[in-house]
Computed example of a mutant assay.
Amino acid sequence: MTIQLTSAEIQEIQQLLKDYAPAQAAFTTLEKYNGRFDTSFDELWQEKTSIEVYGNKSLWDSTLKILREELCGDDGFRSQFQEYTKNPASAPLLTGLIVSVTTLSGLPLDPAISTVVVLYLLKVGLKIFCEYTAP
């Protein structure tokens, strides 16, 4: 099953982050791929790193596995995530989540790629993500 954002969800969050320029590339790519996180992530990754996605191993899945190790055990990130879910109209809180994923991951994630990751986490929920992807 593919998890994706609807056009309405993309537009709503895009409006919330209209003043956060790094996220705009994420929205353009998400719209291009009908809200699909995996294909949007792959394209943004390729643009950023010039590394082609290859083989049948999913770069998206591999990245989520690594992020799980970093994000699910970080109490500060979990707290930040909870604050945003209590106040989903807060652009500063959402931007803070994107910046946190960019810096905590230890991966070559730019804010556009981190935006896709954060929107995915918001769509499925952090607790579900952490439990579902547990080894």
Score class of each variant (00 low, 15 high):
Gln82Arg: 14
Thr103Leu: 08
Ile3Arg: 13
Gly125Leu: 07
Pro108Leu: 03
Ser105Leu: 02
Val117Met: 05
Pro22Asn: 08
Gly106Ile: 10
Val118Asp: 05
Leu109Thr: 03
Phe129Tyr: 12
Thr103Asp: 09
Thr39Leu: 09
Thr133Gly: 05
Asn87Tyr: 09
Ser7Lys: 13
Ala91Cys: 11
Leu71Trp: 06
Ser100Pro: 00
Phe81Arg: 05
Lys123Gly: 06
Leu16Gly: 07
Asp74Arg: 09
Ala134Tyr: 11
Val53Pro: 00
Leu97Phe: 01
Met1Trp: 03
Lys48Met: 11
Phe37Met: 14
Gly106Glu: 06
Leu59Ala: 08
Ile128Glu: 11
Asp61Trp: 04
Lys65Asp: 12
Gln24Asn: 06
Leu119Asn: 07
Thr95Pro: 00
Lys57Trp: 11
Leu121Ile: 03
Pro108Phe: 01
Asp75His: 12
Ser58Phe: 04
Glu9Ile: 07
Gln80Phe: 09
Trp45Gly: 01
Val53Ser: 09
Gly35Lys: 11
Val118Pro: 06
Phe41Gln: 10
Val117His: 02
Pro88Arg: 13
Ala112Lys: 04
Leu5Glu: 12
Ala25Thr: 11
Glu52Cys: 04
Val117Asp: 05
Thr115Leu: 03
Cys72His: 07
Thr63Gly: 00
Ile128Arg: 10
Val124Gly: 00
Ser114Ala: 15
Phe77Trp: 02
Pro22Val: 05
Ala8Trp: 01
Glu83Ser: 14
Pro88Ser: 13
Val99Cys: 00
Ile13Glu: 06
Thr115Tyr: 01
Thr28Asn: 13
Ile13His: 09
Gln14Lys: 14
Thr95His: 02
Thr103Gly: 03
Leu119Ile: 02
Thr6Val: 09
Leu71Asn: 01
Leu30Ile: 08
Gln15Arg: 13
Arg36Glu: 15
Tyr132Pro: 00
Ala25Gly: 03
Tyr20Thr: 02
Asn34Pro: 00
Ser90Met: 13
Thr63Ala: 08
Gly96Glu: 09
Tyr33Lys: 05
Glu70Val: 05
Thr102Cys: 10
Gly125Thr: 10
Thr63Tyr: 07
Gly96Val: 02
Asp61Gly: 00
Asp61Ser: 13
Tyr20Cys: 05
Gly96Lys: 06
Ser58Pro: 07
Asp74Asn: 15
Lys32Ser: 15
Thr49Phe: 10
Thr95Ala: 11
Tyr20Trp: 07
Tyr120Trp: 11
Pro88Leu: 11
Asp61Leu: 10
Lys86Tyr: 06
Gln46Asp: 03
Leu126Cys: 14
Gln4Gly: 13
Lys123Ala: 03
Leu67Glu: 04
Val124Pro: 04
Tyr132His: 08
Leu122Met: 02
Gly55Thr: 07
Trp45Arg: 10
Lys57His: 13
Ser50Lys: 15
Thr103His: 09
Asp38Phe: 01
Gln11Leu: 14
Leu109Ala: 05
Glu131Gln: 10
Leu94Ala: 04
